[in-house]
Each structure stands twice: as C-alpha cells, then as structure tokens.
Design a protein around this nucleic acid. Structure first.
Lengths: 168, 168
DNA sequence: CAAAATTACTTGACAAAGCAAGTATCATCC
DNA sequence: GGATGATACTTGCTTTGTCAAGTAATTTTG
C-alpha cells in the first residue's frame, strides 16, 4: 500500500499530529472562531454566509460570470446556480445573458444588494478591528500572508490523481 | 485627498478588506487546498471527512461524550448525532450511556476504527510531509502557532451576545 | 460546413450544515 | 418533594456541499 513503506509495525504509535496541531482541523477551528461574530452580524441581515460572500465578491469585482463568482466566493458552481434564483427574487442581484455568448450568465449586485452590504460595513469593520486588536496587526498580516501562500501550493503534483488532471 | 471623512455619500462605504485578504475567506481557500489530497486519501477509505475527524478525535482523546466530540471535531451536535448510528453500524465506534447520567452518550473508537485510522497514518503523514516540503517547515509551524492563537481569541466579549453567555 | 469537442451552466440525488423546536434526564429551590 | 430550570442530546426542515449526468451554446476539426 504505502509505497513509501517506512514503518511496518502497525502497533507502534501512528505518526499523527495532535488534532490541535493538525492543519486541516486548525484551519477549521480558526474559521469557526472568526465566523462567530460574523454569523451574529449576518443573522439579522437576512442573508447567510454564502450569499454574503457572493454579494461581497460582486461588490468588489463588479458584474461577473457565474463561474468566476463561484471561484472567488469559494462555492461550487452547482451551489451558486441554486442560490442565484432566490437572490434575484430577493432583489439582491440581477442576472443577464450576454448576447455574444449565450451559454454564460453574468450577475451583478443591485442597489438593494449594495445597500445591504453597506448597511453592515461598519459592523463588519468593527469585528475585524476587534480581531486585529486582540490578535495584533502584524500577526494578522503575517497570518494572511501565510494563508495566501498556502493557497498557491500545488499539492497534486506527483500524486496518482495528478495523472487524471494532467491527462487533459 | 482629504481624509476628513464626513461625506454623506453612501457610495463611499466603509472600506471592506479585499476578499483576497479577508480572513474568513482566506481560511476557507487555504483549507480547500490542503483538503485536496486528503480527500483523495479518504475517498478510498470508506469514511468521509467528518467521520475521519471523529475517529481522529476518539483515537487521540479516548472515549468521550458526544458534546465533547462535536466540539473537538468541529461538528454540530446535531450532525454528530446523525452520524453516530451509521458509524456504530459500520463497527467503527461503540456507544454507551453512563448509568450515572443517562442523558449522556459516550462513544469510543473500536479496534476496527483504530485499524482504519492506522491504515492511513502513513499516507496522512506523507501528505503533511509534502505540504511541509513545499511550504517550509518553519513557515508551517509558524502558521500552526498563529492558528492556535487565533482559536483562543474570545471575540464575543463586549458584544450583545456576550451577555447571553455571561449570564451563565 | 457538419460532426466532434469544449464550455458554461443545470439538474438530480443524497449526505451534511445550520437553525429551531422537542424530549428525556438530572439538578435546584422553595 | 413537586414545580422550575438546566443539560444533553434528537428530530424536523431548509439550504448547501459534493459528485455524477445532462443540456444548450460555442469552437474546433476533418
């Protein structure tokens, strides 16, 4: 199985990192902490976390194709597809098909959507401010730098699965 | 331009941090990257990400109450409730109600569950090793330190919601 | 230019997240 | 010691995640 085959003895302590120092779990736990107050903020705004991300992306980057929005907002395209309808119905975004390529759907934030986002800008800034105050400005920037770098890693190279992707 | 900042224009909204530098979104994106190879590993292990976290927690901390497991594995209690049945059925964990408090449910990892975890210890270590190799040992440790500290922040103090908790 | 890819979404099916409400069990307080 | 309150889950319901398939609109090719 493991071609690396260093240890054959299954009974000796598995080389697991404590969950507290496990990268995936740490990222999850850290996120829960920062999302706490943000969820409080959103709970009385009428939108959930995902819709908020969509609005933030559209506000920041302007009208975009669904695929782009999905990538920016870290959503699957299929999830985004299913939330566009309701968001249009709520008047938060508008949708149009560009005539030059009718496969695409471009969505844009509406004035109402923008108003919603702006209505929480102050509180949002306050939350970030509290995080920065407790965590330290420099450490926060450092953390963001590290996370940004981490996002750029290509962890698939060399894996068997990479072949699948590489084939095409 | 003057930063006196008393414009009434709503369009000059309080500055949001670019989504690229948004802490919640960065944590999400970073996690997507590291989960890639881990999902590959789990896909042929028969357990999903959440069940894997439950097993890891039980393996590391021993038998625990559901609430504790949920907190450690970063799962909602209701989600955990719904996965315990299947996991017991699969023979990965066992469940018992302590006679001294019959409200509780204590779960423990079974030998089969432990075997499953150990069976992937090598591959898991290899994945972490690849991350460490590409990202750098020191930077990884630094990131884990920062994330660990972030988890300890109490962001609720001073918020209206804190009152709920403070009422104790 | 018609057949064969490719692209950009959509839809289906099922597990899991998230939130609200409900149900037993303890624990407390007159 | 029975009502009140707090715990520790459970259950219901809607939305989202995830993966597989499907569809319509371009592009590319022979």
């Amino acid at each position: 199985m493991p071609e690396t085959g260093h240890k054959l003895d299954m009974t000796d302590a598995p080389a697991f990192r404590q969950t507290r120092r496990s990268l995936p779990i740490s990222l999850l736990r850290a996120r829960e902490v920062v999302m706490g107050p943000i969820r409080d903020m959103l709970s009385d705004s009428g939108v959930n976390e995902q819709k908020w991300r969509v609005l933030r992306v559209l506000q920041e980057k302007g009208p975009q194709e669904l695929s782009q929005v999905a990538a920016e907002a870290v959503l699957l395209l299929s999830s985004l597809t299913r939330m566009v309808g309701p968001m249009v119905a709520e008047g938060l975004i508008s949708r149009m098909t560009p005539p030059e390529d009718r496969r695409k759907t471009v969505v844009a934030i509406t004035p109402a959507g923008l108003a919603l986002v702006n209505a929480h800008a102050g509180e949002s800034a306050a939350i970030l401010g509290r995080i920065e105050a407790e965590f330290g400005h420099n450490r926060l920037e450092q953390l963001l730098d590290l996370l940004e770098d981490l996002q750029r890693l290509d962890l698939r190279s060399g894996t068997p699965e990479a072949a699948q992707k590489a084939r095409r």
